[in-house]
Amino acid sequence: MAPPVVLNPRPGELILDLAAAPGSKTTQMSEMMEWRGTIVANDVSPSRINALSSNIQRMGCMNVVINRADGRRIHRIYGEIFDRVLLDAPCSSIGQVRRSWEALKRWNQNLVERISVLQRDLAIAAYKALKPGGLMVYSTCTFDPEENELVVQSLVNRGAEVVKFDIPGLKTREGLVEWEGVKLDDSLAYTRRIYPHLNDTEGFYIALLRKVPI
């Protein structure tokens, strides 16, 4: 999957996967790290923790520590200690319509506005948990700017630097720099929208950010 590839965790590092369950990206990162270092795999839901735990065990990920907490409090639990953070945020999932028609049935603007508040709070907590100079990936499987660029803009407003990246072999489009008449930071063009028709995949959005040392 693309978000771990963009985050590029290295062996020996300390990584946070803030909304980890069911763990497909956690296990991918564990292997990328050659089972060295640590991934804190956090989720809030007990039932989803069970699925996460089962997948961690089955995939032999001995460098994963599972934590159960509201992600919005994560920086208060661990402090600013992580080299890299992945926030694959809960979202309205409109990018999954090809796979699940239910996503379209569930979608409405109220959902987008409600979930974007949670996404922004999670993103801020994730950003705070980074070491100065650390890297963070924010990703969703949806296209609504309220859930994507506007969340990233809230981190830019707190001093985050948007980092340019490519995903080899994947066609992408630039992130939006304007929405409903509101001008966003130009660096948001470095974030990536991956539409289903570009690569015959589901759709998603990825941003890579660096915590600028104060």
Binding site: I49, M62, V65, I66
Partner: peptide, 19 residues
Amino acid sequence: IRMVSPESKGINGIIKGIY
């Protein structure tokens, strides 16, 4: 007995490594 990367031993969490 579980197997845990040495770096993970001091990190807080409810489950560490694999059984």
